[in-house]
Nucleic acid binder design. Sequence first.
DNA 1: ACAAAAGTGTTTGTGTTACACCCATGC
DNA 2: GCATGGGTGTAACACAAACACTTTTGT
Lengths: 241, 241
Amino acid sequence: VKPFDTQQMIQQLSIDCVIFGYQSQAIKVLIPRLDLPDECWALPGGFIHQNEGIDHAAQRILKERTGLTDIYLEQFRVFGGADRINLALQDHLKTADRDKLAHLGISEVHVQWLAQRFVSIGYYALVDIDKVKPQKSTIDASVDWYPIKNLPTMIMDHHTIIEEALKTLRAHLDERLLGFNLLPDTFTMKELQELYEAVYDTPFARNNFQKKILDLGVLERLEKKFTGAANKAPYLYRFKQ
Amino acid sequence: VKPFDTQQMIQQLSIDCVIFGYQSQAIKVLIPRLDLPDECWALPGGFIHQNEGIDHAAQRILKERTGLTDIYLEQFRVFGGADRINLALQDHLKTADRDKLAHLGISEVHVQWLAQRFVSIGYYALVDIDKVKPQKSTIDASVDWYPIKNLPTMIMDHHTIIEEALKTLRAHLDERLLGFNLLPDTFTMKELQELYEAVYDTPFARNNFQKKILDLGVLERLEKKFTGAANKAPYLYRFKQ
DNA sequence: ACAAAAGTGTTTGTGTTACACCCATGC
DNA sequence: GCATGGGTGTAACACAAACACTTTTGT
């Protein structure tokens, strides 16, 4: 959340983004901590301009947070319970120092805006974690990557949103060949396998995994990668086009 | 669309329902024709009350149109292009007879409401076509079932919405065993096969289809159905519980 | 008896799983 | 040479497609 013109936005409709990265054999999610007295985490989100499509809005929000454009991004579900009101944030804002808020560009209008009930469109994004430079917005205390197995306590239904996003990722990773979005340009077969194992939280047989992936015909074999280790050097691969 | 209190609704957010039925070896969609000078069809839709979850809103809209409760219903996608403004309806309403509109309970406030840009949540429903008694709303000229292969020309992106709903149905029919929602309580194996053939628009081998379905273990075999035809009488089946 | 359609069984092919083996690399 | 990890091959198995045959029904 950052200062915005509430007049130019669609009312009571928001976008929440689950930004997935992969690092150290673990799937991670980019989550800002809000700058409030209590510890409080919320998914990166935003609102939709009147003259802007929802996909464009999601891309804009992602660019603000990651600095990246052209990243894989897809809506996966709408969260629209009647109880989707951010009571925690509301309370904090009501008791907060008005001067401090004003300094951040947050006015009474914004506080009232944020106190409404919101229907939120869930998007998930896949990024190369090394290419992201997380950007704090004005009301964030910090922005960090949290492993999917060790998430902070989040506001409202944001934990459910992440769970649903992970379900969707699991369903799509294979059928739409999304893996390369989470990896560097080149990678070894073992790295790809470990990514799959992190997503599905289950081990795969090494030889059969290699066969299955290569039979898809979407990988291009490059030169070998000499690591200096006392074993056969693995090939590097790249996704075609 | 019927008279409503715009104050109690979420602004610029709508629900559009693709109601699927099955009859005469064809998948059909329930579509109202609007009572306007030009021929004009639009998906059954509605808006979300302030104190109402989106799933509940979709159920309410469906009950208004079909008279049915407890029907299979699921959101499948959000349509949110910046250009989603119902220009056709807008023009019609502007030139329409104000007295006639007032008689239907549609005021200037409603006309302005409908002229906004809308983000729409797509839901699809599966119903037993014989149990539905289509209900006209105040601005409908008629409500009819149209075969998926022969749809009328629809407003805005409603044709795209139906296509996406069909894609989702195809993806879900098998994995979630949704077939029984479209059929009467009891049915023959041939009828079930013809349903699948209608959904996927492709023929299946009779014996293999039977084996595949029975191996799922979700059907209960009942007595035979004597049709009077000069051939072996087929068994009737029912979905377990 | 015969046609029509339902039910069942058998073979074939394909793809996945499990097991085994060989190869390159640095110490 | 040898331990380590990477690459490849093959047998066993399960599942799906294609083919064939038998059974029931009303004329």
